[in-house]
């Protein structure tokens, strides 16, 4: 019954307005699979903050598709901080004046406390002997990926393949587009999202290879068993960043700048970095990276800034209507 009363109370609260609560509350708007990371991180920070200042904080989470989340923030979702998995989403908020223009410099490491990479998940024993991107573009291979235009996961795969082709001897934008076109021809479908791609590959048995975040591999193991697949790291892949930022407008209005800044800074602390590593995200701390080396073999990576001149530019060139993805499908 208390639950019911709480719901009624929420309802009334919502109707009246964001009435002031006793505790200071922070809302973290995050991407959809980040729950495990922040489920452990939030109590850790609450304890740390209480010990340091004596103030008890209430931390709330909102999870959804990255772009959907930042649009909600732009439309008035009162999040104090955003913790996303695509830099262009934060750029969008910066354009709207909700986030500082130099958000990437407000925190270390491009404001990304941890990273991941794009890897191949193949069936047990790697029956087709996949080693690198060109193996996936060979005729007769089936690749499973989320929609490259509509999902962050799919975009990272697309850009990884593009960058690999670009770095081959004699590589150019033209040869890269041709290569990516060949690769996409091997996709029998574009999954609705990362999770859907995994289900399609693991449960429905479709395709020879699934391309996804390294951190997903462990989640797949959790649900489908470790022995059923293998992880292959290609010769070059994208270092995917998970940028964080403070929503200036909201923290100014709520007076939570101090708490919000500390909340994000703590992600770089030993505890915060260890928590990321335990959730299979590559920590920035080199010592921890070594400690968890069995999870994180060294790979050659590139960043979007290095190869594509920034997330916004990459997005505009490849994924906007009429971009390279559309050109591959719509001859014009």
């Amino acid at each position: 019954m208390t639950q019911f009363r709480k719901s009624i109370a929420t309802l009334l609260l919502g109707l009246v307005a964001g009435a002031a609560l006793a505790d200071t509350t922070l809302l973290n708007a995050s991407y959809d699979v980040a729950r495990d990371v922040y489920k452990d991180y939030n109590p850790m920070f609450q304890k740390h903050w209480k010990a340091k200042t004596g103030e008890s904080l209430e931390l709330k989470q909102s999870h959804g598709g990255s772009t959907k989340q930042v649009r909600a923030v732009a439309d008035g979702l009162e999040a104090d901080v955003v913790t996303m998995n695509q830099a262009n989403d934060i750029e969008f908020l910066a354009d709207k004046g909700l986030v500082a223009k130099d958000w990437a410099k407000k925190f270390p490491n491009n404001a990304s406390p941890y990273t991941s990479t794009m890897v191949f998940i193949v069936r047990k024993g790697n029956p087709k002997g996949f080693k690198d991107w060109n193996d996936l573009a060979a005729p007769g291979v089936q690749i499973i990926i989320p929609h490259p235009k509509n999902t962050g996961n799919g975009r990272n795969t697309y850009l990884s393949a593009w960058a690999w082709a670009l770095k081959q001897p004699g590589g150019s934008d033209k040869s890269a587009q041709e290569f990516v076109g060949k690769l996409l021809k091997n996709a029998p479908l574009f999954a609705a999202g990362g999770r859907d791609a995994t289900t399609t590959f693991m449960q429905r048995g479709l395709g020879d290879v699934l391309i996804t975040f390294e951190s997903e591999a462990e989640m797949i193991a959790k649900e489908f068993g470790k022995g059923n697949f293998e992880v292959i790291h290609p010769s070059l892949t994208m270092q995917t960043e998970f940028p964080v930022a403070i929503i200036e407008k909201v923290v100014d209005k709520k007076g939570t700048r101090k708490q919000a800044t500390a909340y994000l800074e703590y992600l770089w602390s030993k505890e915060g970095q260890e928590n990321a590593a335990q959730n299979y995200l590559r920590p920035r701390d080199p010592e921890l990276l070594k400690k968890y080396a069995h999870f994180f073999p060294p790979v050659k990576t590139f960043t979007v800034d290095e190869v594509f001149g920034g997330a916004n530019k990459a997005f505009a060139t490849h994924f906007k209507d009429g971009g390279s993805f559309d050109q591959i499908y719509v001859a014009k």
Partner: peptide, 29 residues
Amino acid sequence: IFIAGNLPLVSEIVPLLIISKLEQYDVLG
């Protein structure tokens, strides 16, 4: 979207294109 395959020109539906526009922050489109 979970059963269509979502291949451009083959199995894309209009609501998916609407979502695709929203993914580009193109609310007007």
